[in-house]
């Protein structure tokens, strides 16, 4: 009887490959899952439009005027999509207001675009509450929002003097993230 039990381990020697392959595969799968999950989290700084020409637009302002991207040619532009119902937009509005106070006629231009917000009364109340001096454009058919691939506000595009998108931020600007974006379009804040 003892001879039989002794012969068993001799019949099935475990090779190192067989021993370590399952844990290696499991670790690789967990690592891939981790990378996939972490990659989509938090604010994004790279967007599909970065490095491409900024889509043209010509939209009405809240005051009834018209602003087009072509009219801003030669100036670096911070294009911010927002809505009155958007909570993170309330956090970044003061940051953008402070930035807009430094803009000049030939230098940086800060422009807002109202995204999916039919309540004009609330939009005006928002601009008054945060004393936004920069123009906010209306995009009733969402044509410009779609052209920029906007799906949820706030989203901000940093466009350089040549009209190329150089930076993108989603999820709410912080002073640091704004600084990073401005650096990409050659603006020293």
């Amino acid at each position: 009887m003892t001879t039989q039990t002794e012969s068993t381990p001799k019949a099935t020697p475990v090779s190192p490959l067989k021993r370590f392959l399952p844990p290696i595969i499991a670790a690789a799968l967990v690592a891939a899952l981790g990378v996939g999950l972490l990659r989509g989290n938090g604010g994004q700084v790279g967007g599909p439009l970065v490095g491409k020409a900024a889509p043209a637009f010509a939209l009405q302002t809240l005051d009834g005027g018209t602003i087009s991207l072509a009219s801003l040619k030669g100036r670096p532009v911070v294009l911010n999509f927002w809505a009155s119902w958007c909570l993170p937009c309330r956090d970044e509005a003061p940051i953008l207001r402070d930035l807009s106070e430094k803009q000049t006629a030939t230098g940086l231009a800060v422009v807002g675009v109202v995204f999916s917000d039919k309540n004009l009364k609330a939009v005006r109340a928002f601009t008054q509450e945060y004393a936004l001096a920069y123009p906010s454009l209306l995009d009733p058919n969402l044509n410009t929002s779609i052209a920029y691939g906007v799906s949820g506000v706030p989203e901000t595009f940093f466009i350089d003097k040549e009209g190329m998108v150089r930076g993108y931020d989603q999820g709410g600007l912080t002073p640091e993230r704004l600084q990073a974006g401005l650096g990409k379009i050659g603006v020293v804040n």
């Binding site: 967007g47 599909p48 439009l49 779609i146 920029y148 691939g149």
Partner: peptide, 9 residues
């Protein structure tokens, strides 16, 4: 649409 929203669209 992919150029604007990425391939995830």
């Amino acid at each position: 649409f992919a150029a604007r929203y990425g391939d995830t669209v």
